[in-house]
Design a protein around this nucleic acid. Structure first.
Lengths: 191, 191
DNA sequence: GTGACTTTACTTACTAAATGGTAAGTCGTC
DNA sequence: GACGACTTACCATTTAGTAAGTAAAGTCAC
């Protein structure tokens, strides 16, 4: 029974990995099909056009991020562990030669259909507002210290991490460690 | 006489614009050819393979950045104007629906040939070390204030700006203004 | 300077492979 | 026997890339 609906998700798994490693225009239905051990047309059966694939991919990524951040909220996790949790998730991506879906889609934004663009915008909003909430909470609890508005700082933070993941592809994961160390130092109170 | 050697450069101009707007795998020789009003094979005459094009493109971009930063150094420009000059250059890119060559190539890094990857690495080194020098100089003159090593802060700054350009594509140039304002505030002494 | 050549900057006319996509058929399960 | 999940067998288009030809400009012996 798990085998049935799974193909549709497995396609997204493979497509997501390919997107994060290579970018949307650098993989094809053939790549997915051969990795899944299935024929080209099977992919089209589940996602008629590559556009449909893109929409589903970003939408699922967005839902996953939603659930992830909601779980952290329910656990009432402290600000620093929340921060470190995100950092670790990104580190895992880097070590698999991947970057964030958001970062890749932002770079390729102009080439995506409107429907996909809207999904990307929603994803960006969610990631930034996750950090916005986290920063606000951390500031109130005296755990974080930063200049200006939490929403603005959240945007900067998101840009920074996206950039760090991309630069880590270019020069290795050491880049990521440097950036994250600097981030931590700057967020710590009494600096 | 300017017409002669110019085609080779015009190809790079068009390819660079397409790269910055769409990414390396989302434009073809046909796109360049039709924009230049020339046939497909003419592009192959100057750049036999797309790989050659990529190498030449990044190398030229790198040379241009070198000259740009050397000129600023010769003028002995003050730290803040140097900083603002870079900010303005990026703003111009955003307004033409483009992102930095470095940011795009970083996102697509895994799909590029080794030769191109080396050029991208060199470009990244140059950009980061430009900021590293600038930050150091600014700090010594009491114009900038930041935590930790200038080289580390430079890396962070570069990530931030690359990310900001990409996010500006997604949600408009307002994003860029917010990020840049925050960056300015954080760099100002006596915060 | 003229004729003979080479070189440069292309065009025309291809090719093989890959791309996204479709229509019709198969096959096991409810 | 209807439906879901495919496969087989296509298709038009686009892709990077090549080979051969051409027109104009440059080079150079004489």
């Amino acid at each position: 029974m798990a085998v049935k609906r799974d193909t549709k998700n497995q396609i997204l798994d493979i497509a997501e990995a390919l997107l994060q490693e290579r970018g949307f225009h650098a993989f094809s239905y053939q790549h997915i099909a051969s990795k899944l051990g299935v024929k080209n047309a099977a992919i089209h059966y589940h996602y008629p056009s590559k556009n449909d694939l893109a929409v589903a991919l970003v939408a699922r990524y967005r839902r996953r991020f939603s659930r992830w951040s909601e779980n952290l909220a329910k656990e009432n996790a402290a600000p620093w562990p929340c921060f470190e949790s995100y950092i670790e998730t990104c580190r895992y991506l880097i070590e698999s030669n991947k970057i964030c879906v958001l970062g890749m889609m932002a770079a390729e934004f102009n080439t995506m259909a409107e429907e996909v663009q809207r999904e990307i915008q929603l994803l960006q909003d969610e990631v930034v507002s996750y950090f916005s909430d986290l920063l606000k909470r951390g500031q109130e609890q005296g755990e974080f210290s930063f200049l200006g508005d939490a929403a603005h700082k959240a945007l900067v933070l998101t840009c920074q991490l996206q950039g760090a993941m991309q630069f880590a592809q270019v020069k290795g994961s050491g880049v990521y460690n440097v950036v994250v160390d600097q981030l931590r130092a700057e967020l710590k109170p009494q600096a």
